[in-house]
């Protein structure tokens, strides 16, 4: 018997794809939200902060259910998407949306911590040297919070890899289509003799997560070293 069955391989591939795409979407989104929370003079920042962090304290199933209500055919957004011919629910894209919403608080928190370390006077210096607000954002703030982006990206990727509750409600558990590693393991645990399949996928999860943590460390180390030049 092969170590991983074809549907297992599909689950691994889908998990990697969902986590990667979710991380790539959450990175710029998290960066902008963190910037708004740290640097802008927007009123109602606390409200926005609370909204972003809600998925961190709510059970993922609740998030999944709320998203389903919104994005479902009769939902506020879903109705509108349906008219445009876009179908999200029970596709891998729904899994991505679930992961972005669940992972965003971790992303924003990490980047925000990095941004708060940046001396506002550095941004002021850039502005007096002729940099517009956006120029300073991309040439000063972004490079200085690169380590925070790496950390935020790692956390979001890891969180996405393990996402279960919101994903199963929003994307379902369709082998080969929306079944990610955690969902596949769940299926294995429900059938007699599924232990070896579940264990194999556990092993794959451990390897992916460990490699990612190592990659994160190497990147941060390289950044520190180039900074000290």
């Amino acid at each position: 018997m092969d170590f991983l069955s074809p549907t297992d391989l599909q689950a691994v591939w889908l998990s990697a794809r969902v986590a990667t795409v979710a991380t790539l979407i959450a990175l710029p989104l998290g960066f902008l939200l963190a910037w708004v929370l740290v640097f802008s003079r927007l009123r109602g920042k606390a409200l926005l902060d609370g909204l972003i962090n809600l998925p961190l304290v709510l059970p993922p199933v609740v998030i999944g259910y709320l998203l389903l209500l919104m994005l479902g055919r009769r939902g506020v957004i879903g109705r509108w998407l349906d008219r445009l011919g876009i179908e999200l629910i029970f596709t891998w894209k729904a899994a991505v949306i679930a992961c972005v919403v669940i992972g965003l608080p971790l992303m924003v928190r990490s980047i925000r911590l990095g941004m708060e370390q940046i001396d506002p006077q550095l941004v002021h210096a850039a502005r007096t040297l002729g940099a517009s607000r956006r120029d300073a954002l991309f040439t000063v703030v972004l490079p200085l919070c690169a380590p925070a982006l790496v950390t935020g990206g790692t956390l979001t990727f890891a969180r996405s890899l393990g996402e279960f509750g919101a994903t199963i409600l929003l994307a379902g558990n369709i082998p080969g289509l929306t079944q990610t590693i955690p969902l596949a393991i769940y299926d294995y645990s429900n059938v007699p003799g599924g232990e070896s399949g579940a264990l194999a996928l556990c092993l794959v999860s451990i390897v992916i997560s460990y490699l990612m943590l190592m990659g994160n460390e190497v990147l941060l180390w390289k950044m520190r070293r180039s900074r000290q030049g």
């Binding site: 002021h124 210096a125 002729g130 940099a131 517009s132």
Partner: peptide, 15 residues
């Protein structure tokens, strides 16, 4: 805006 004023600053700490 500060970037359009052509007024540069040397701060107390070099920044």
């Amino acid at each position: 805006s500060p970037d359009k004023r052509r007024v540069a600053v040397v701060f107390q700490h070099a920044h």
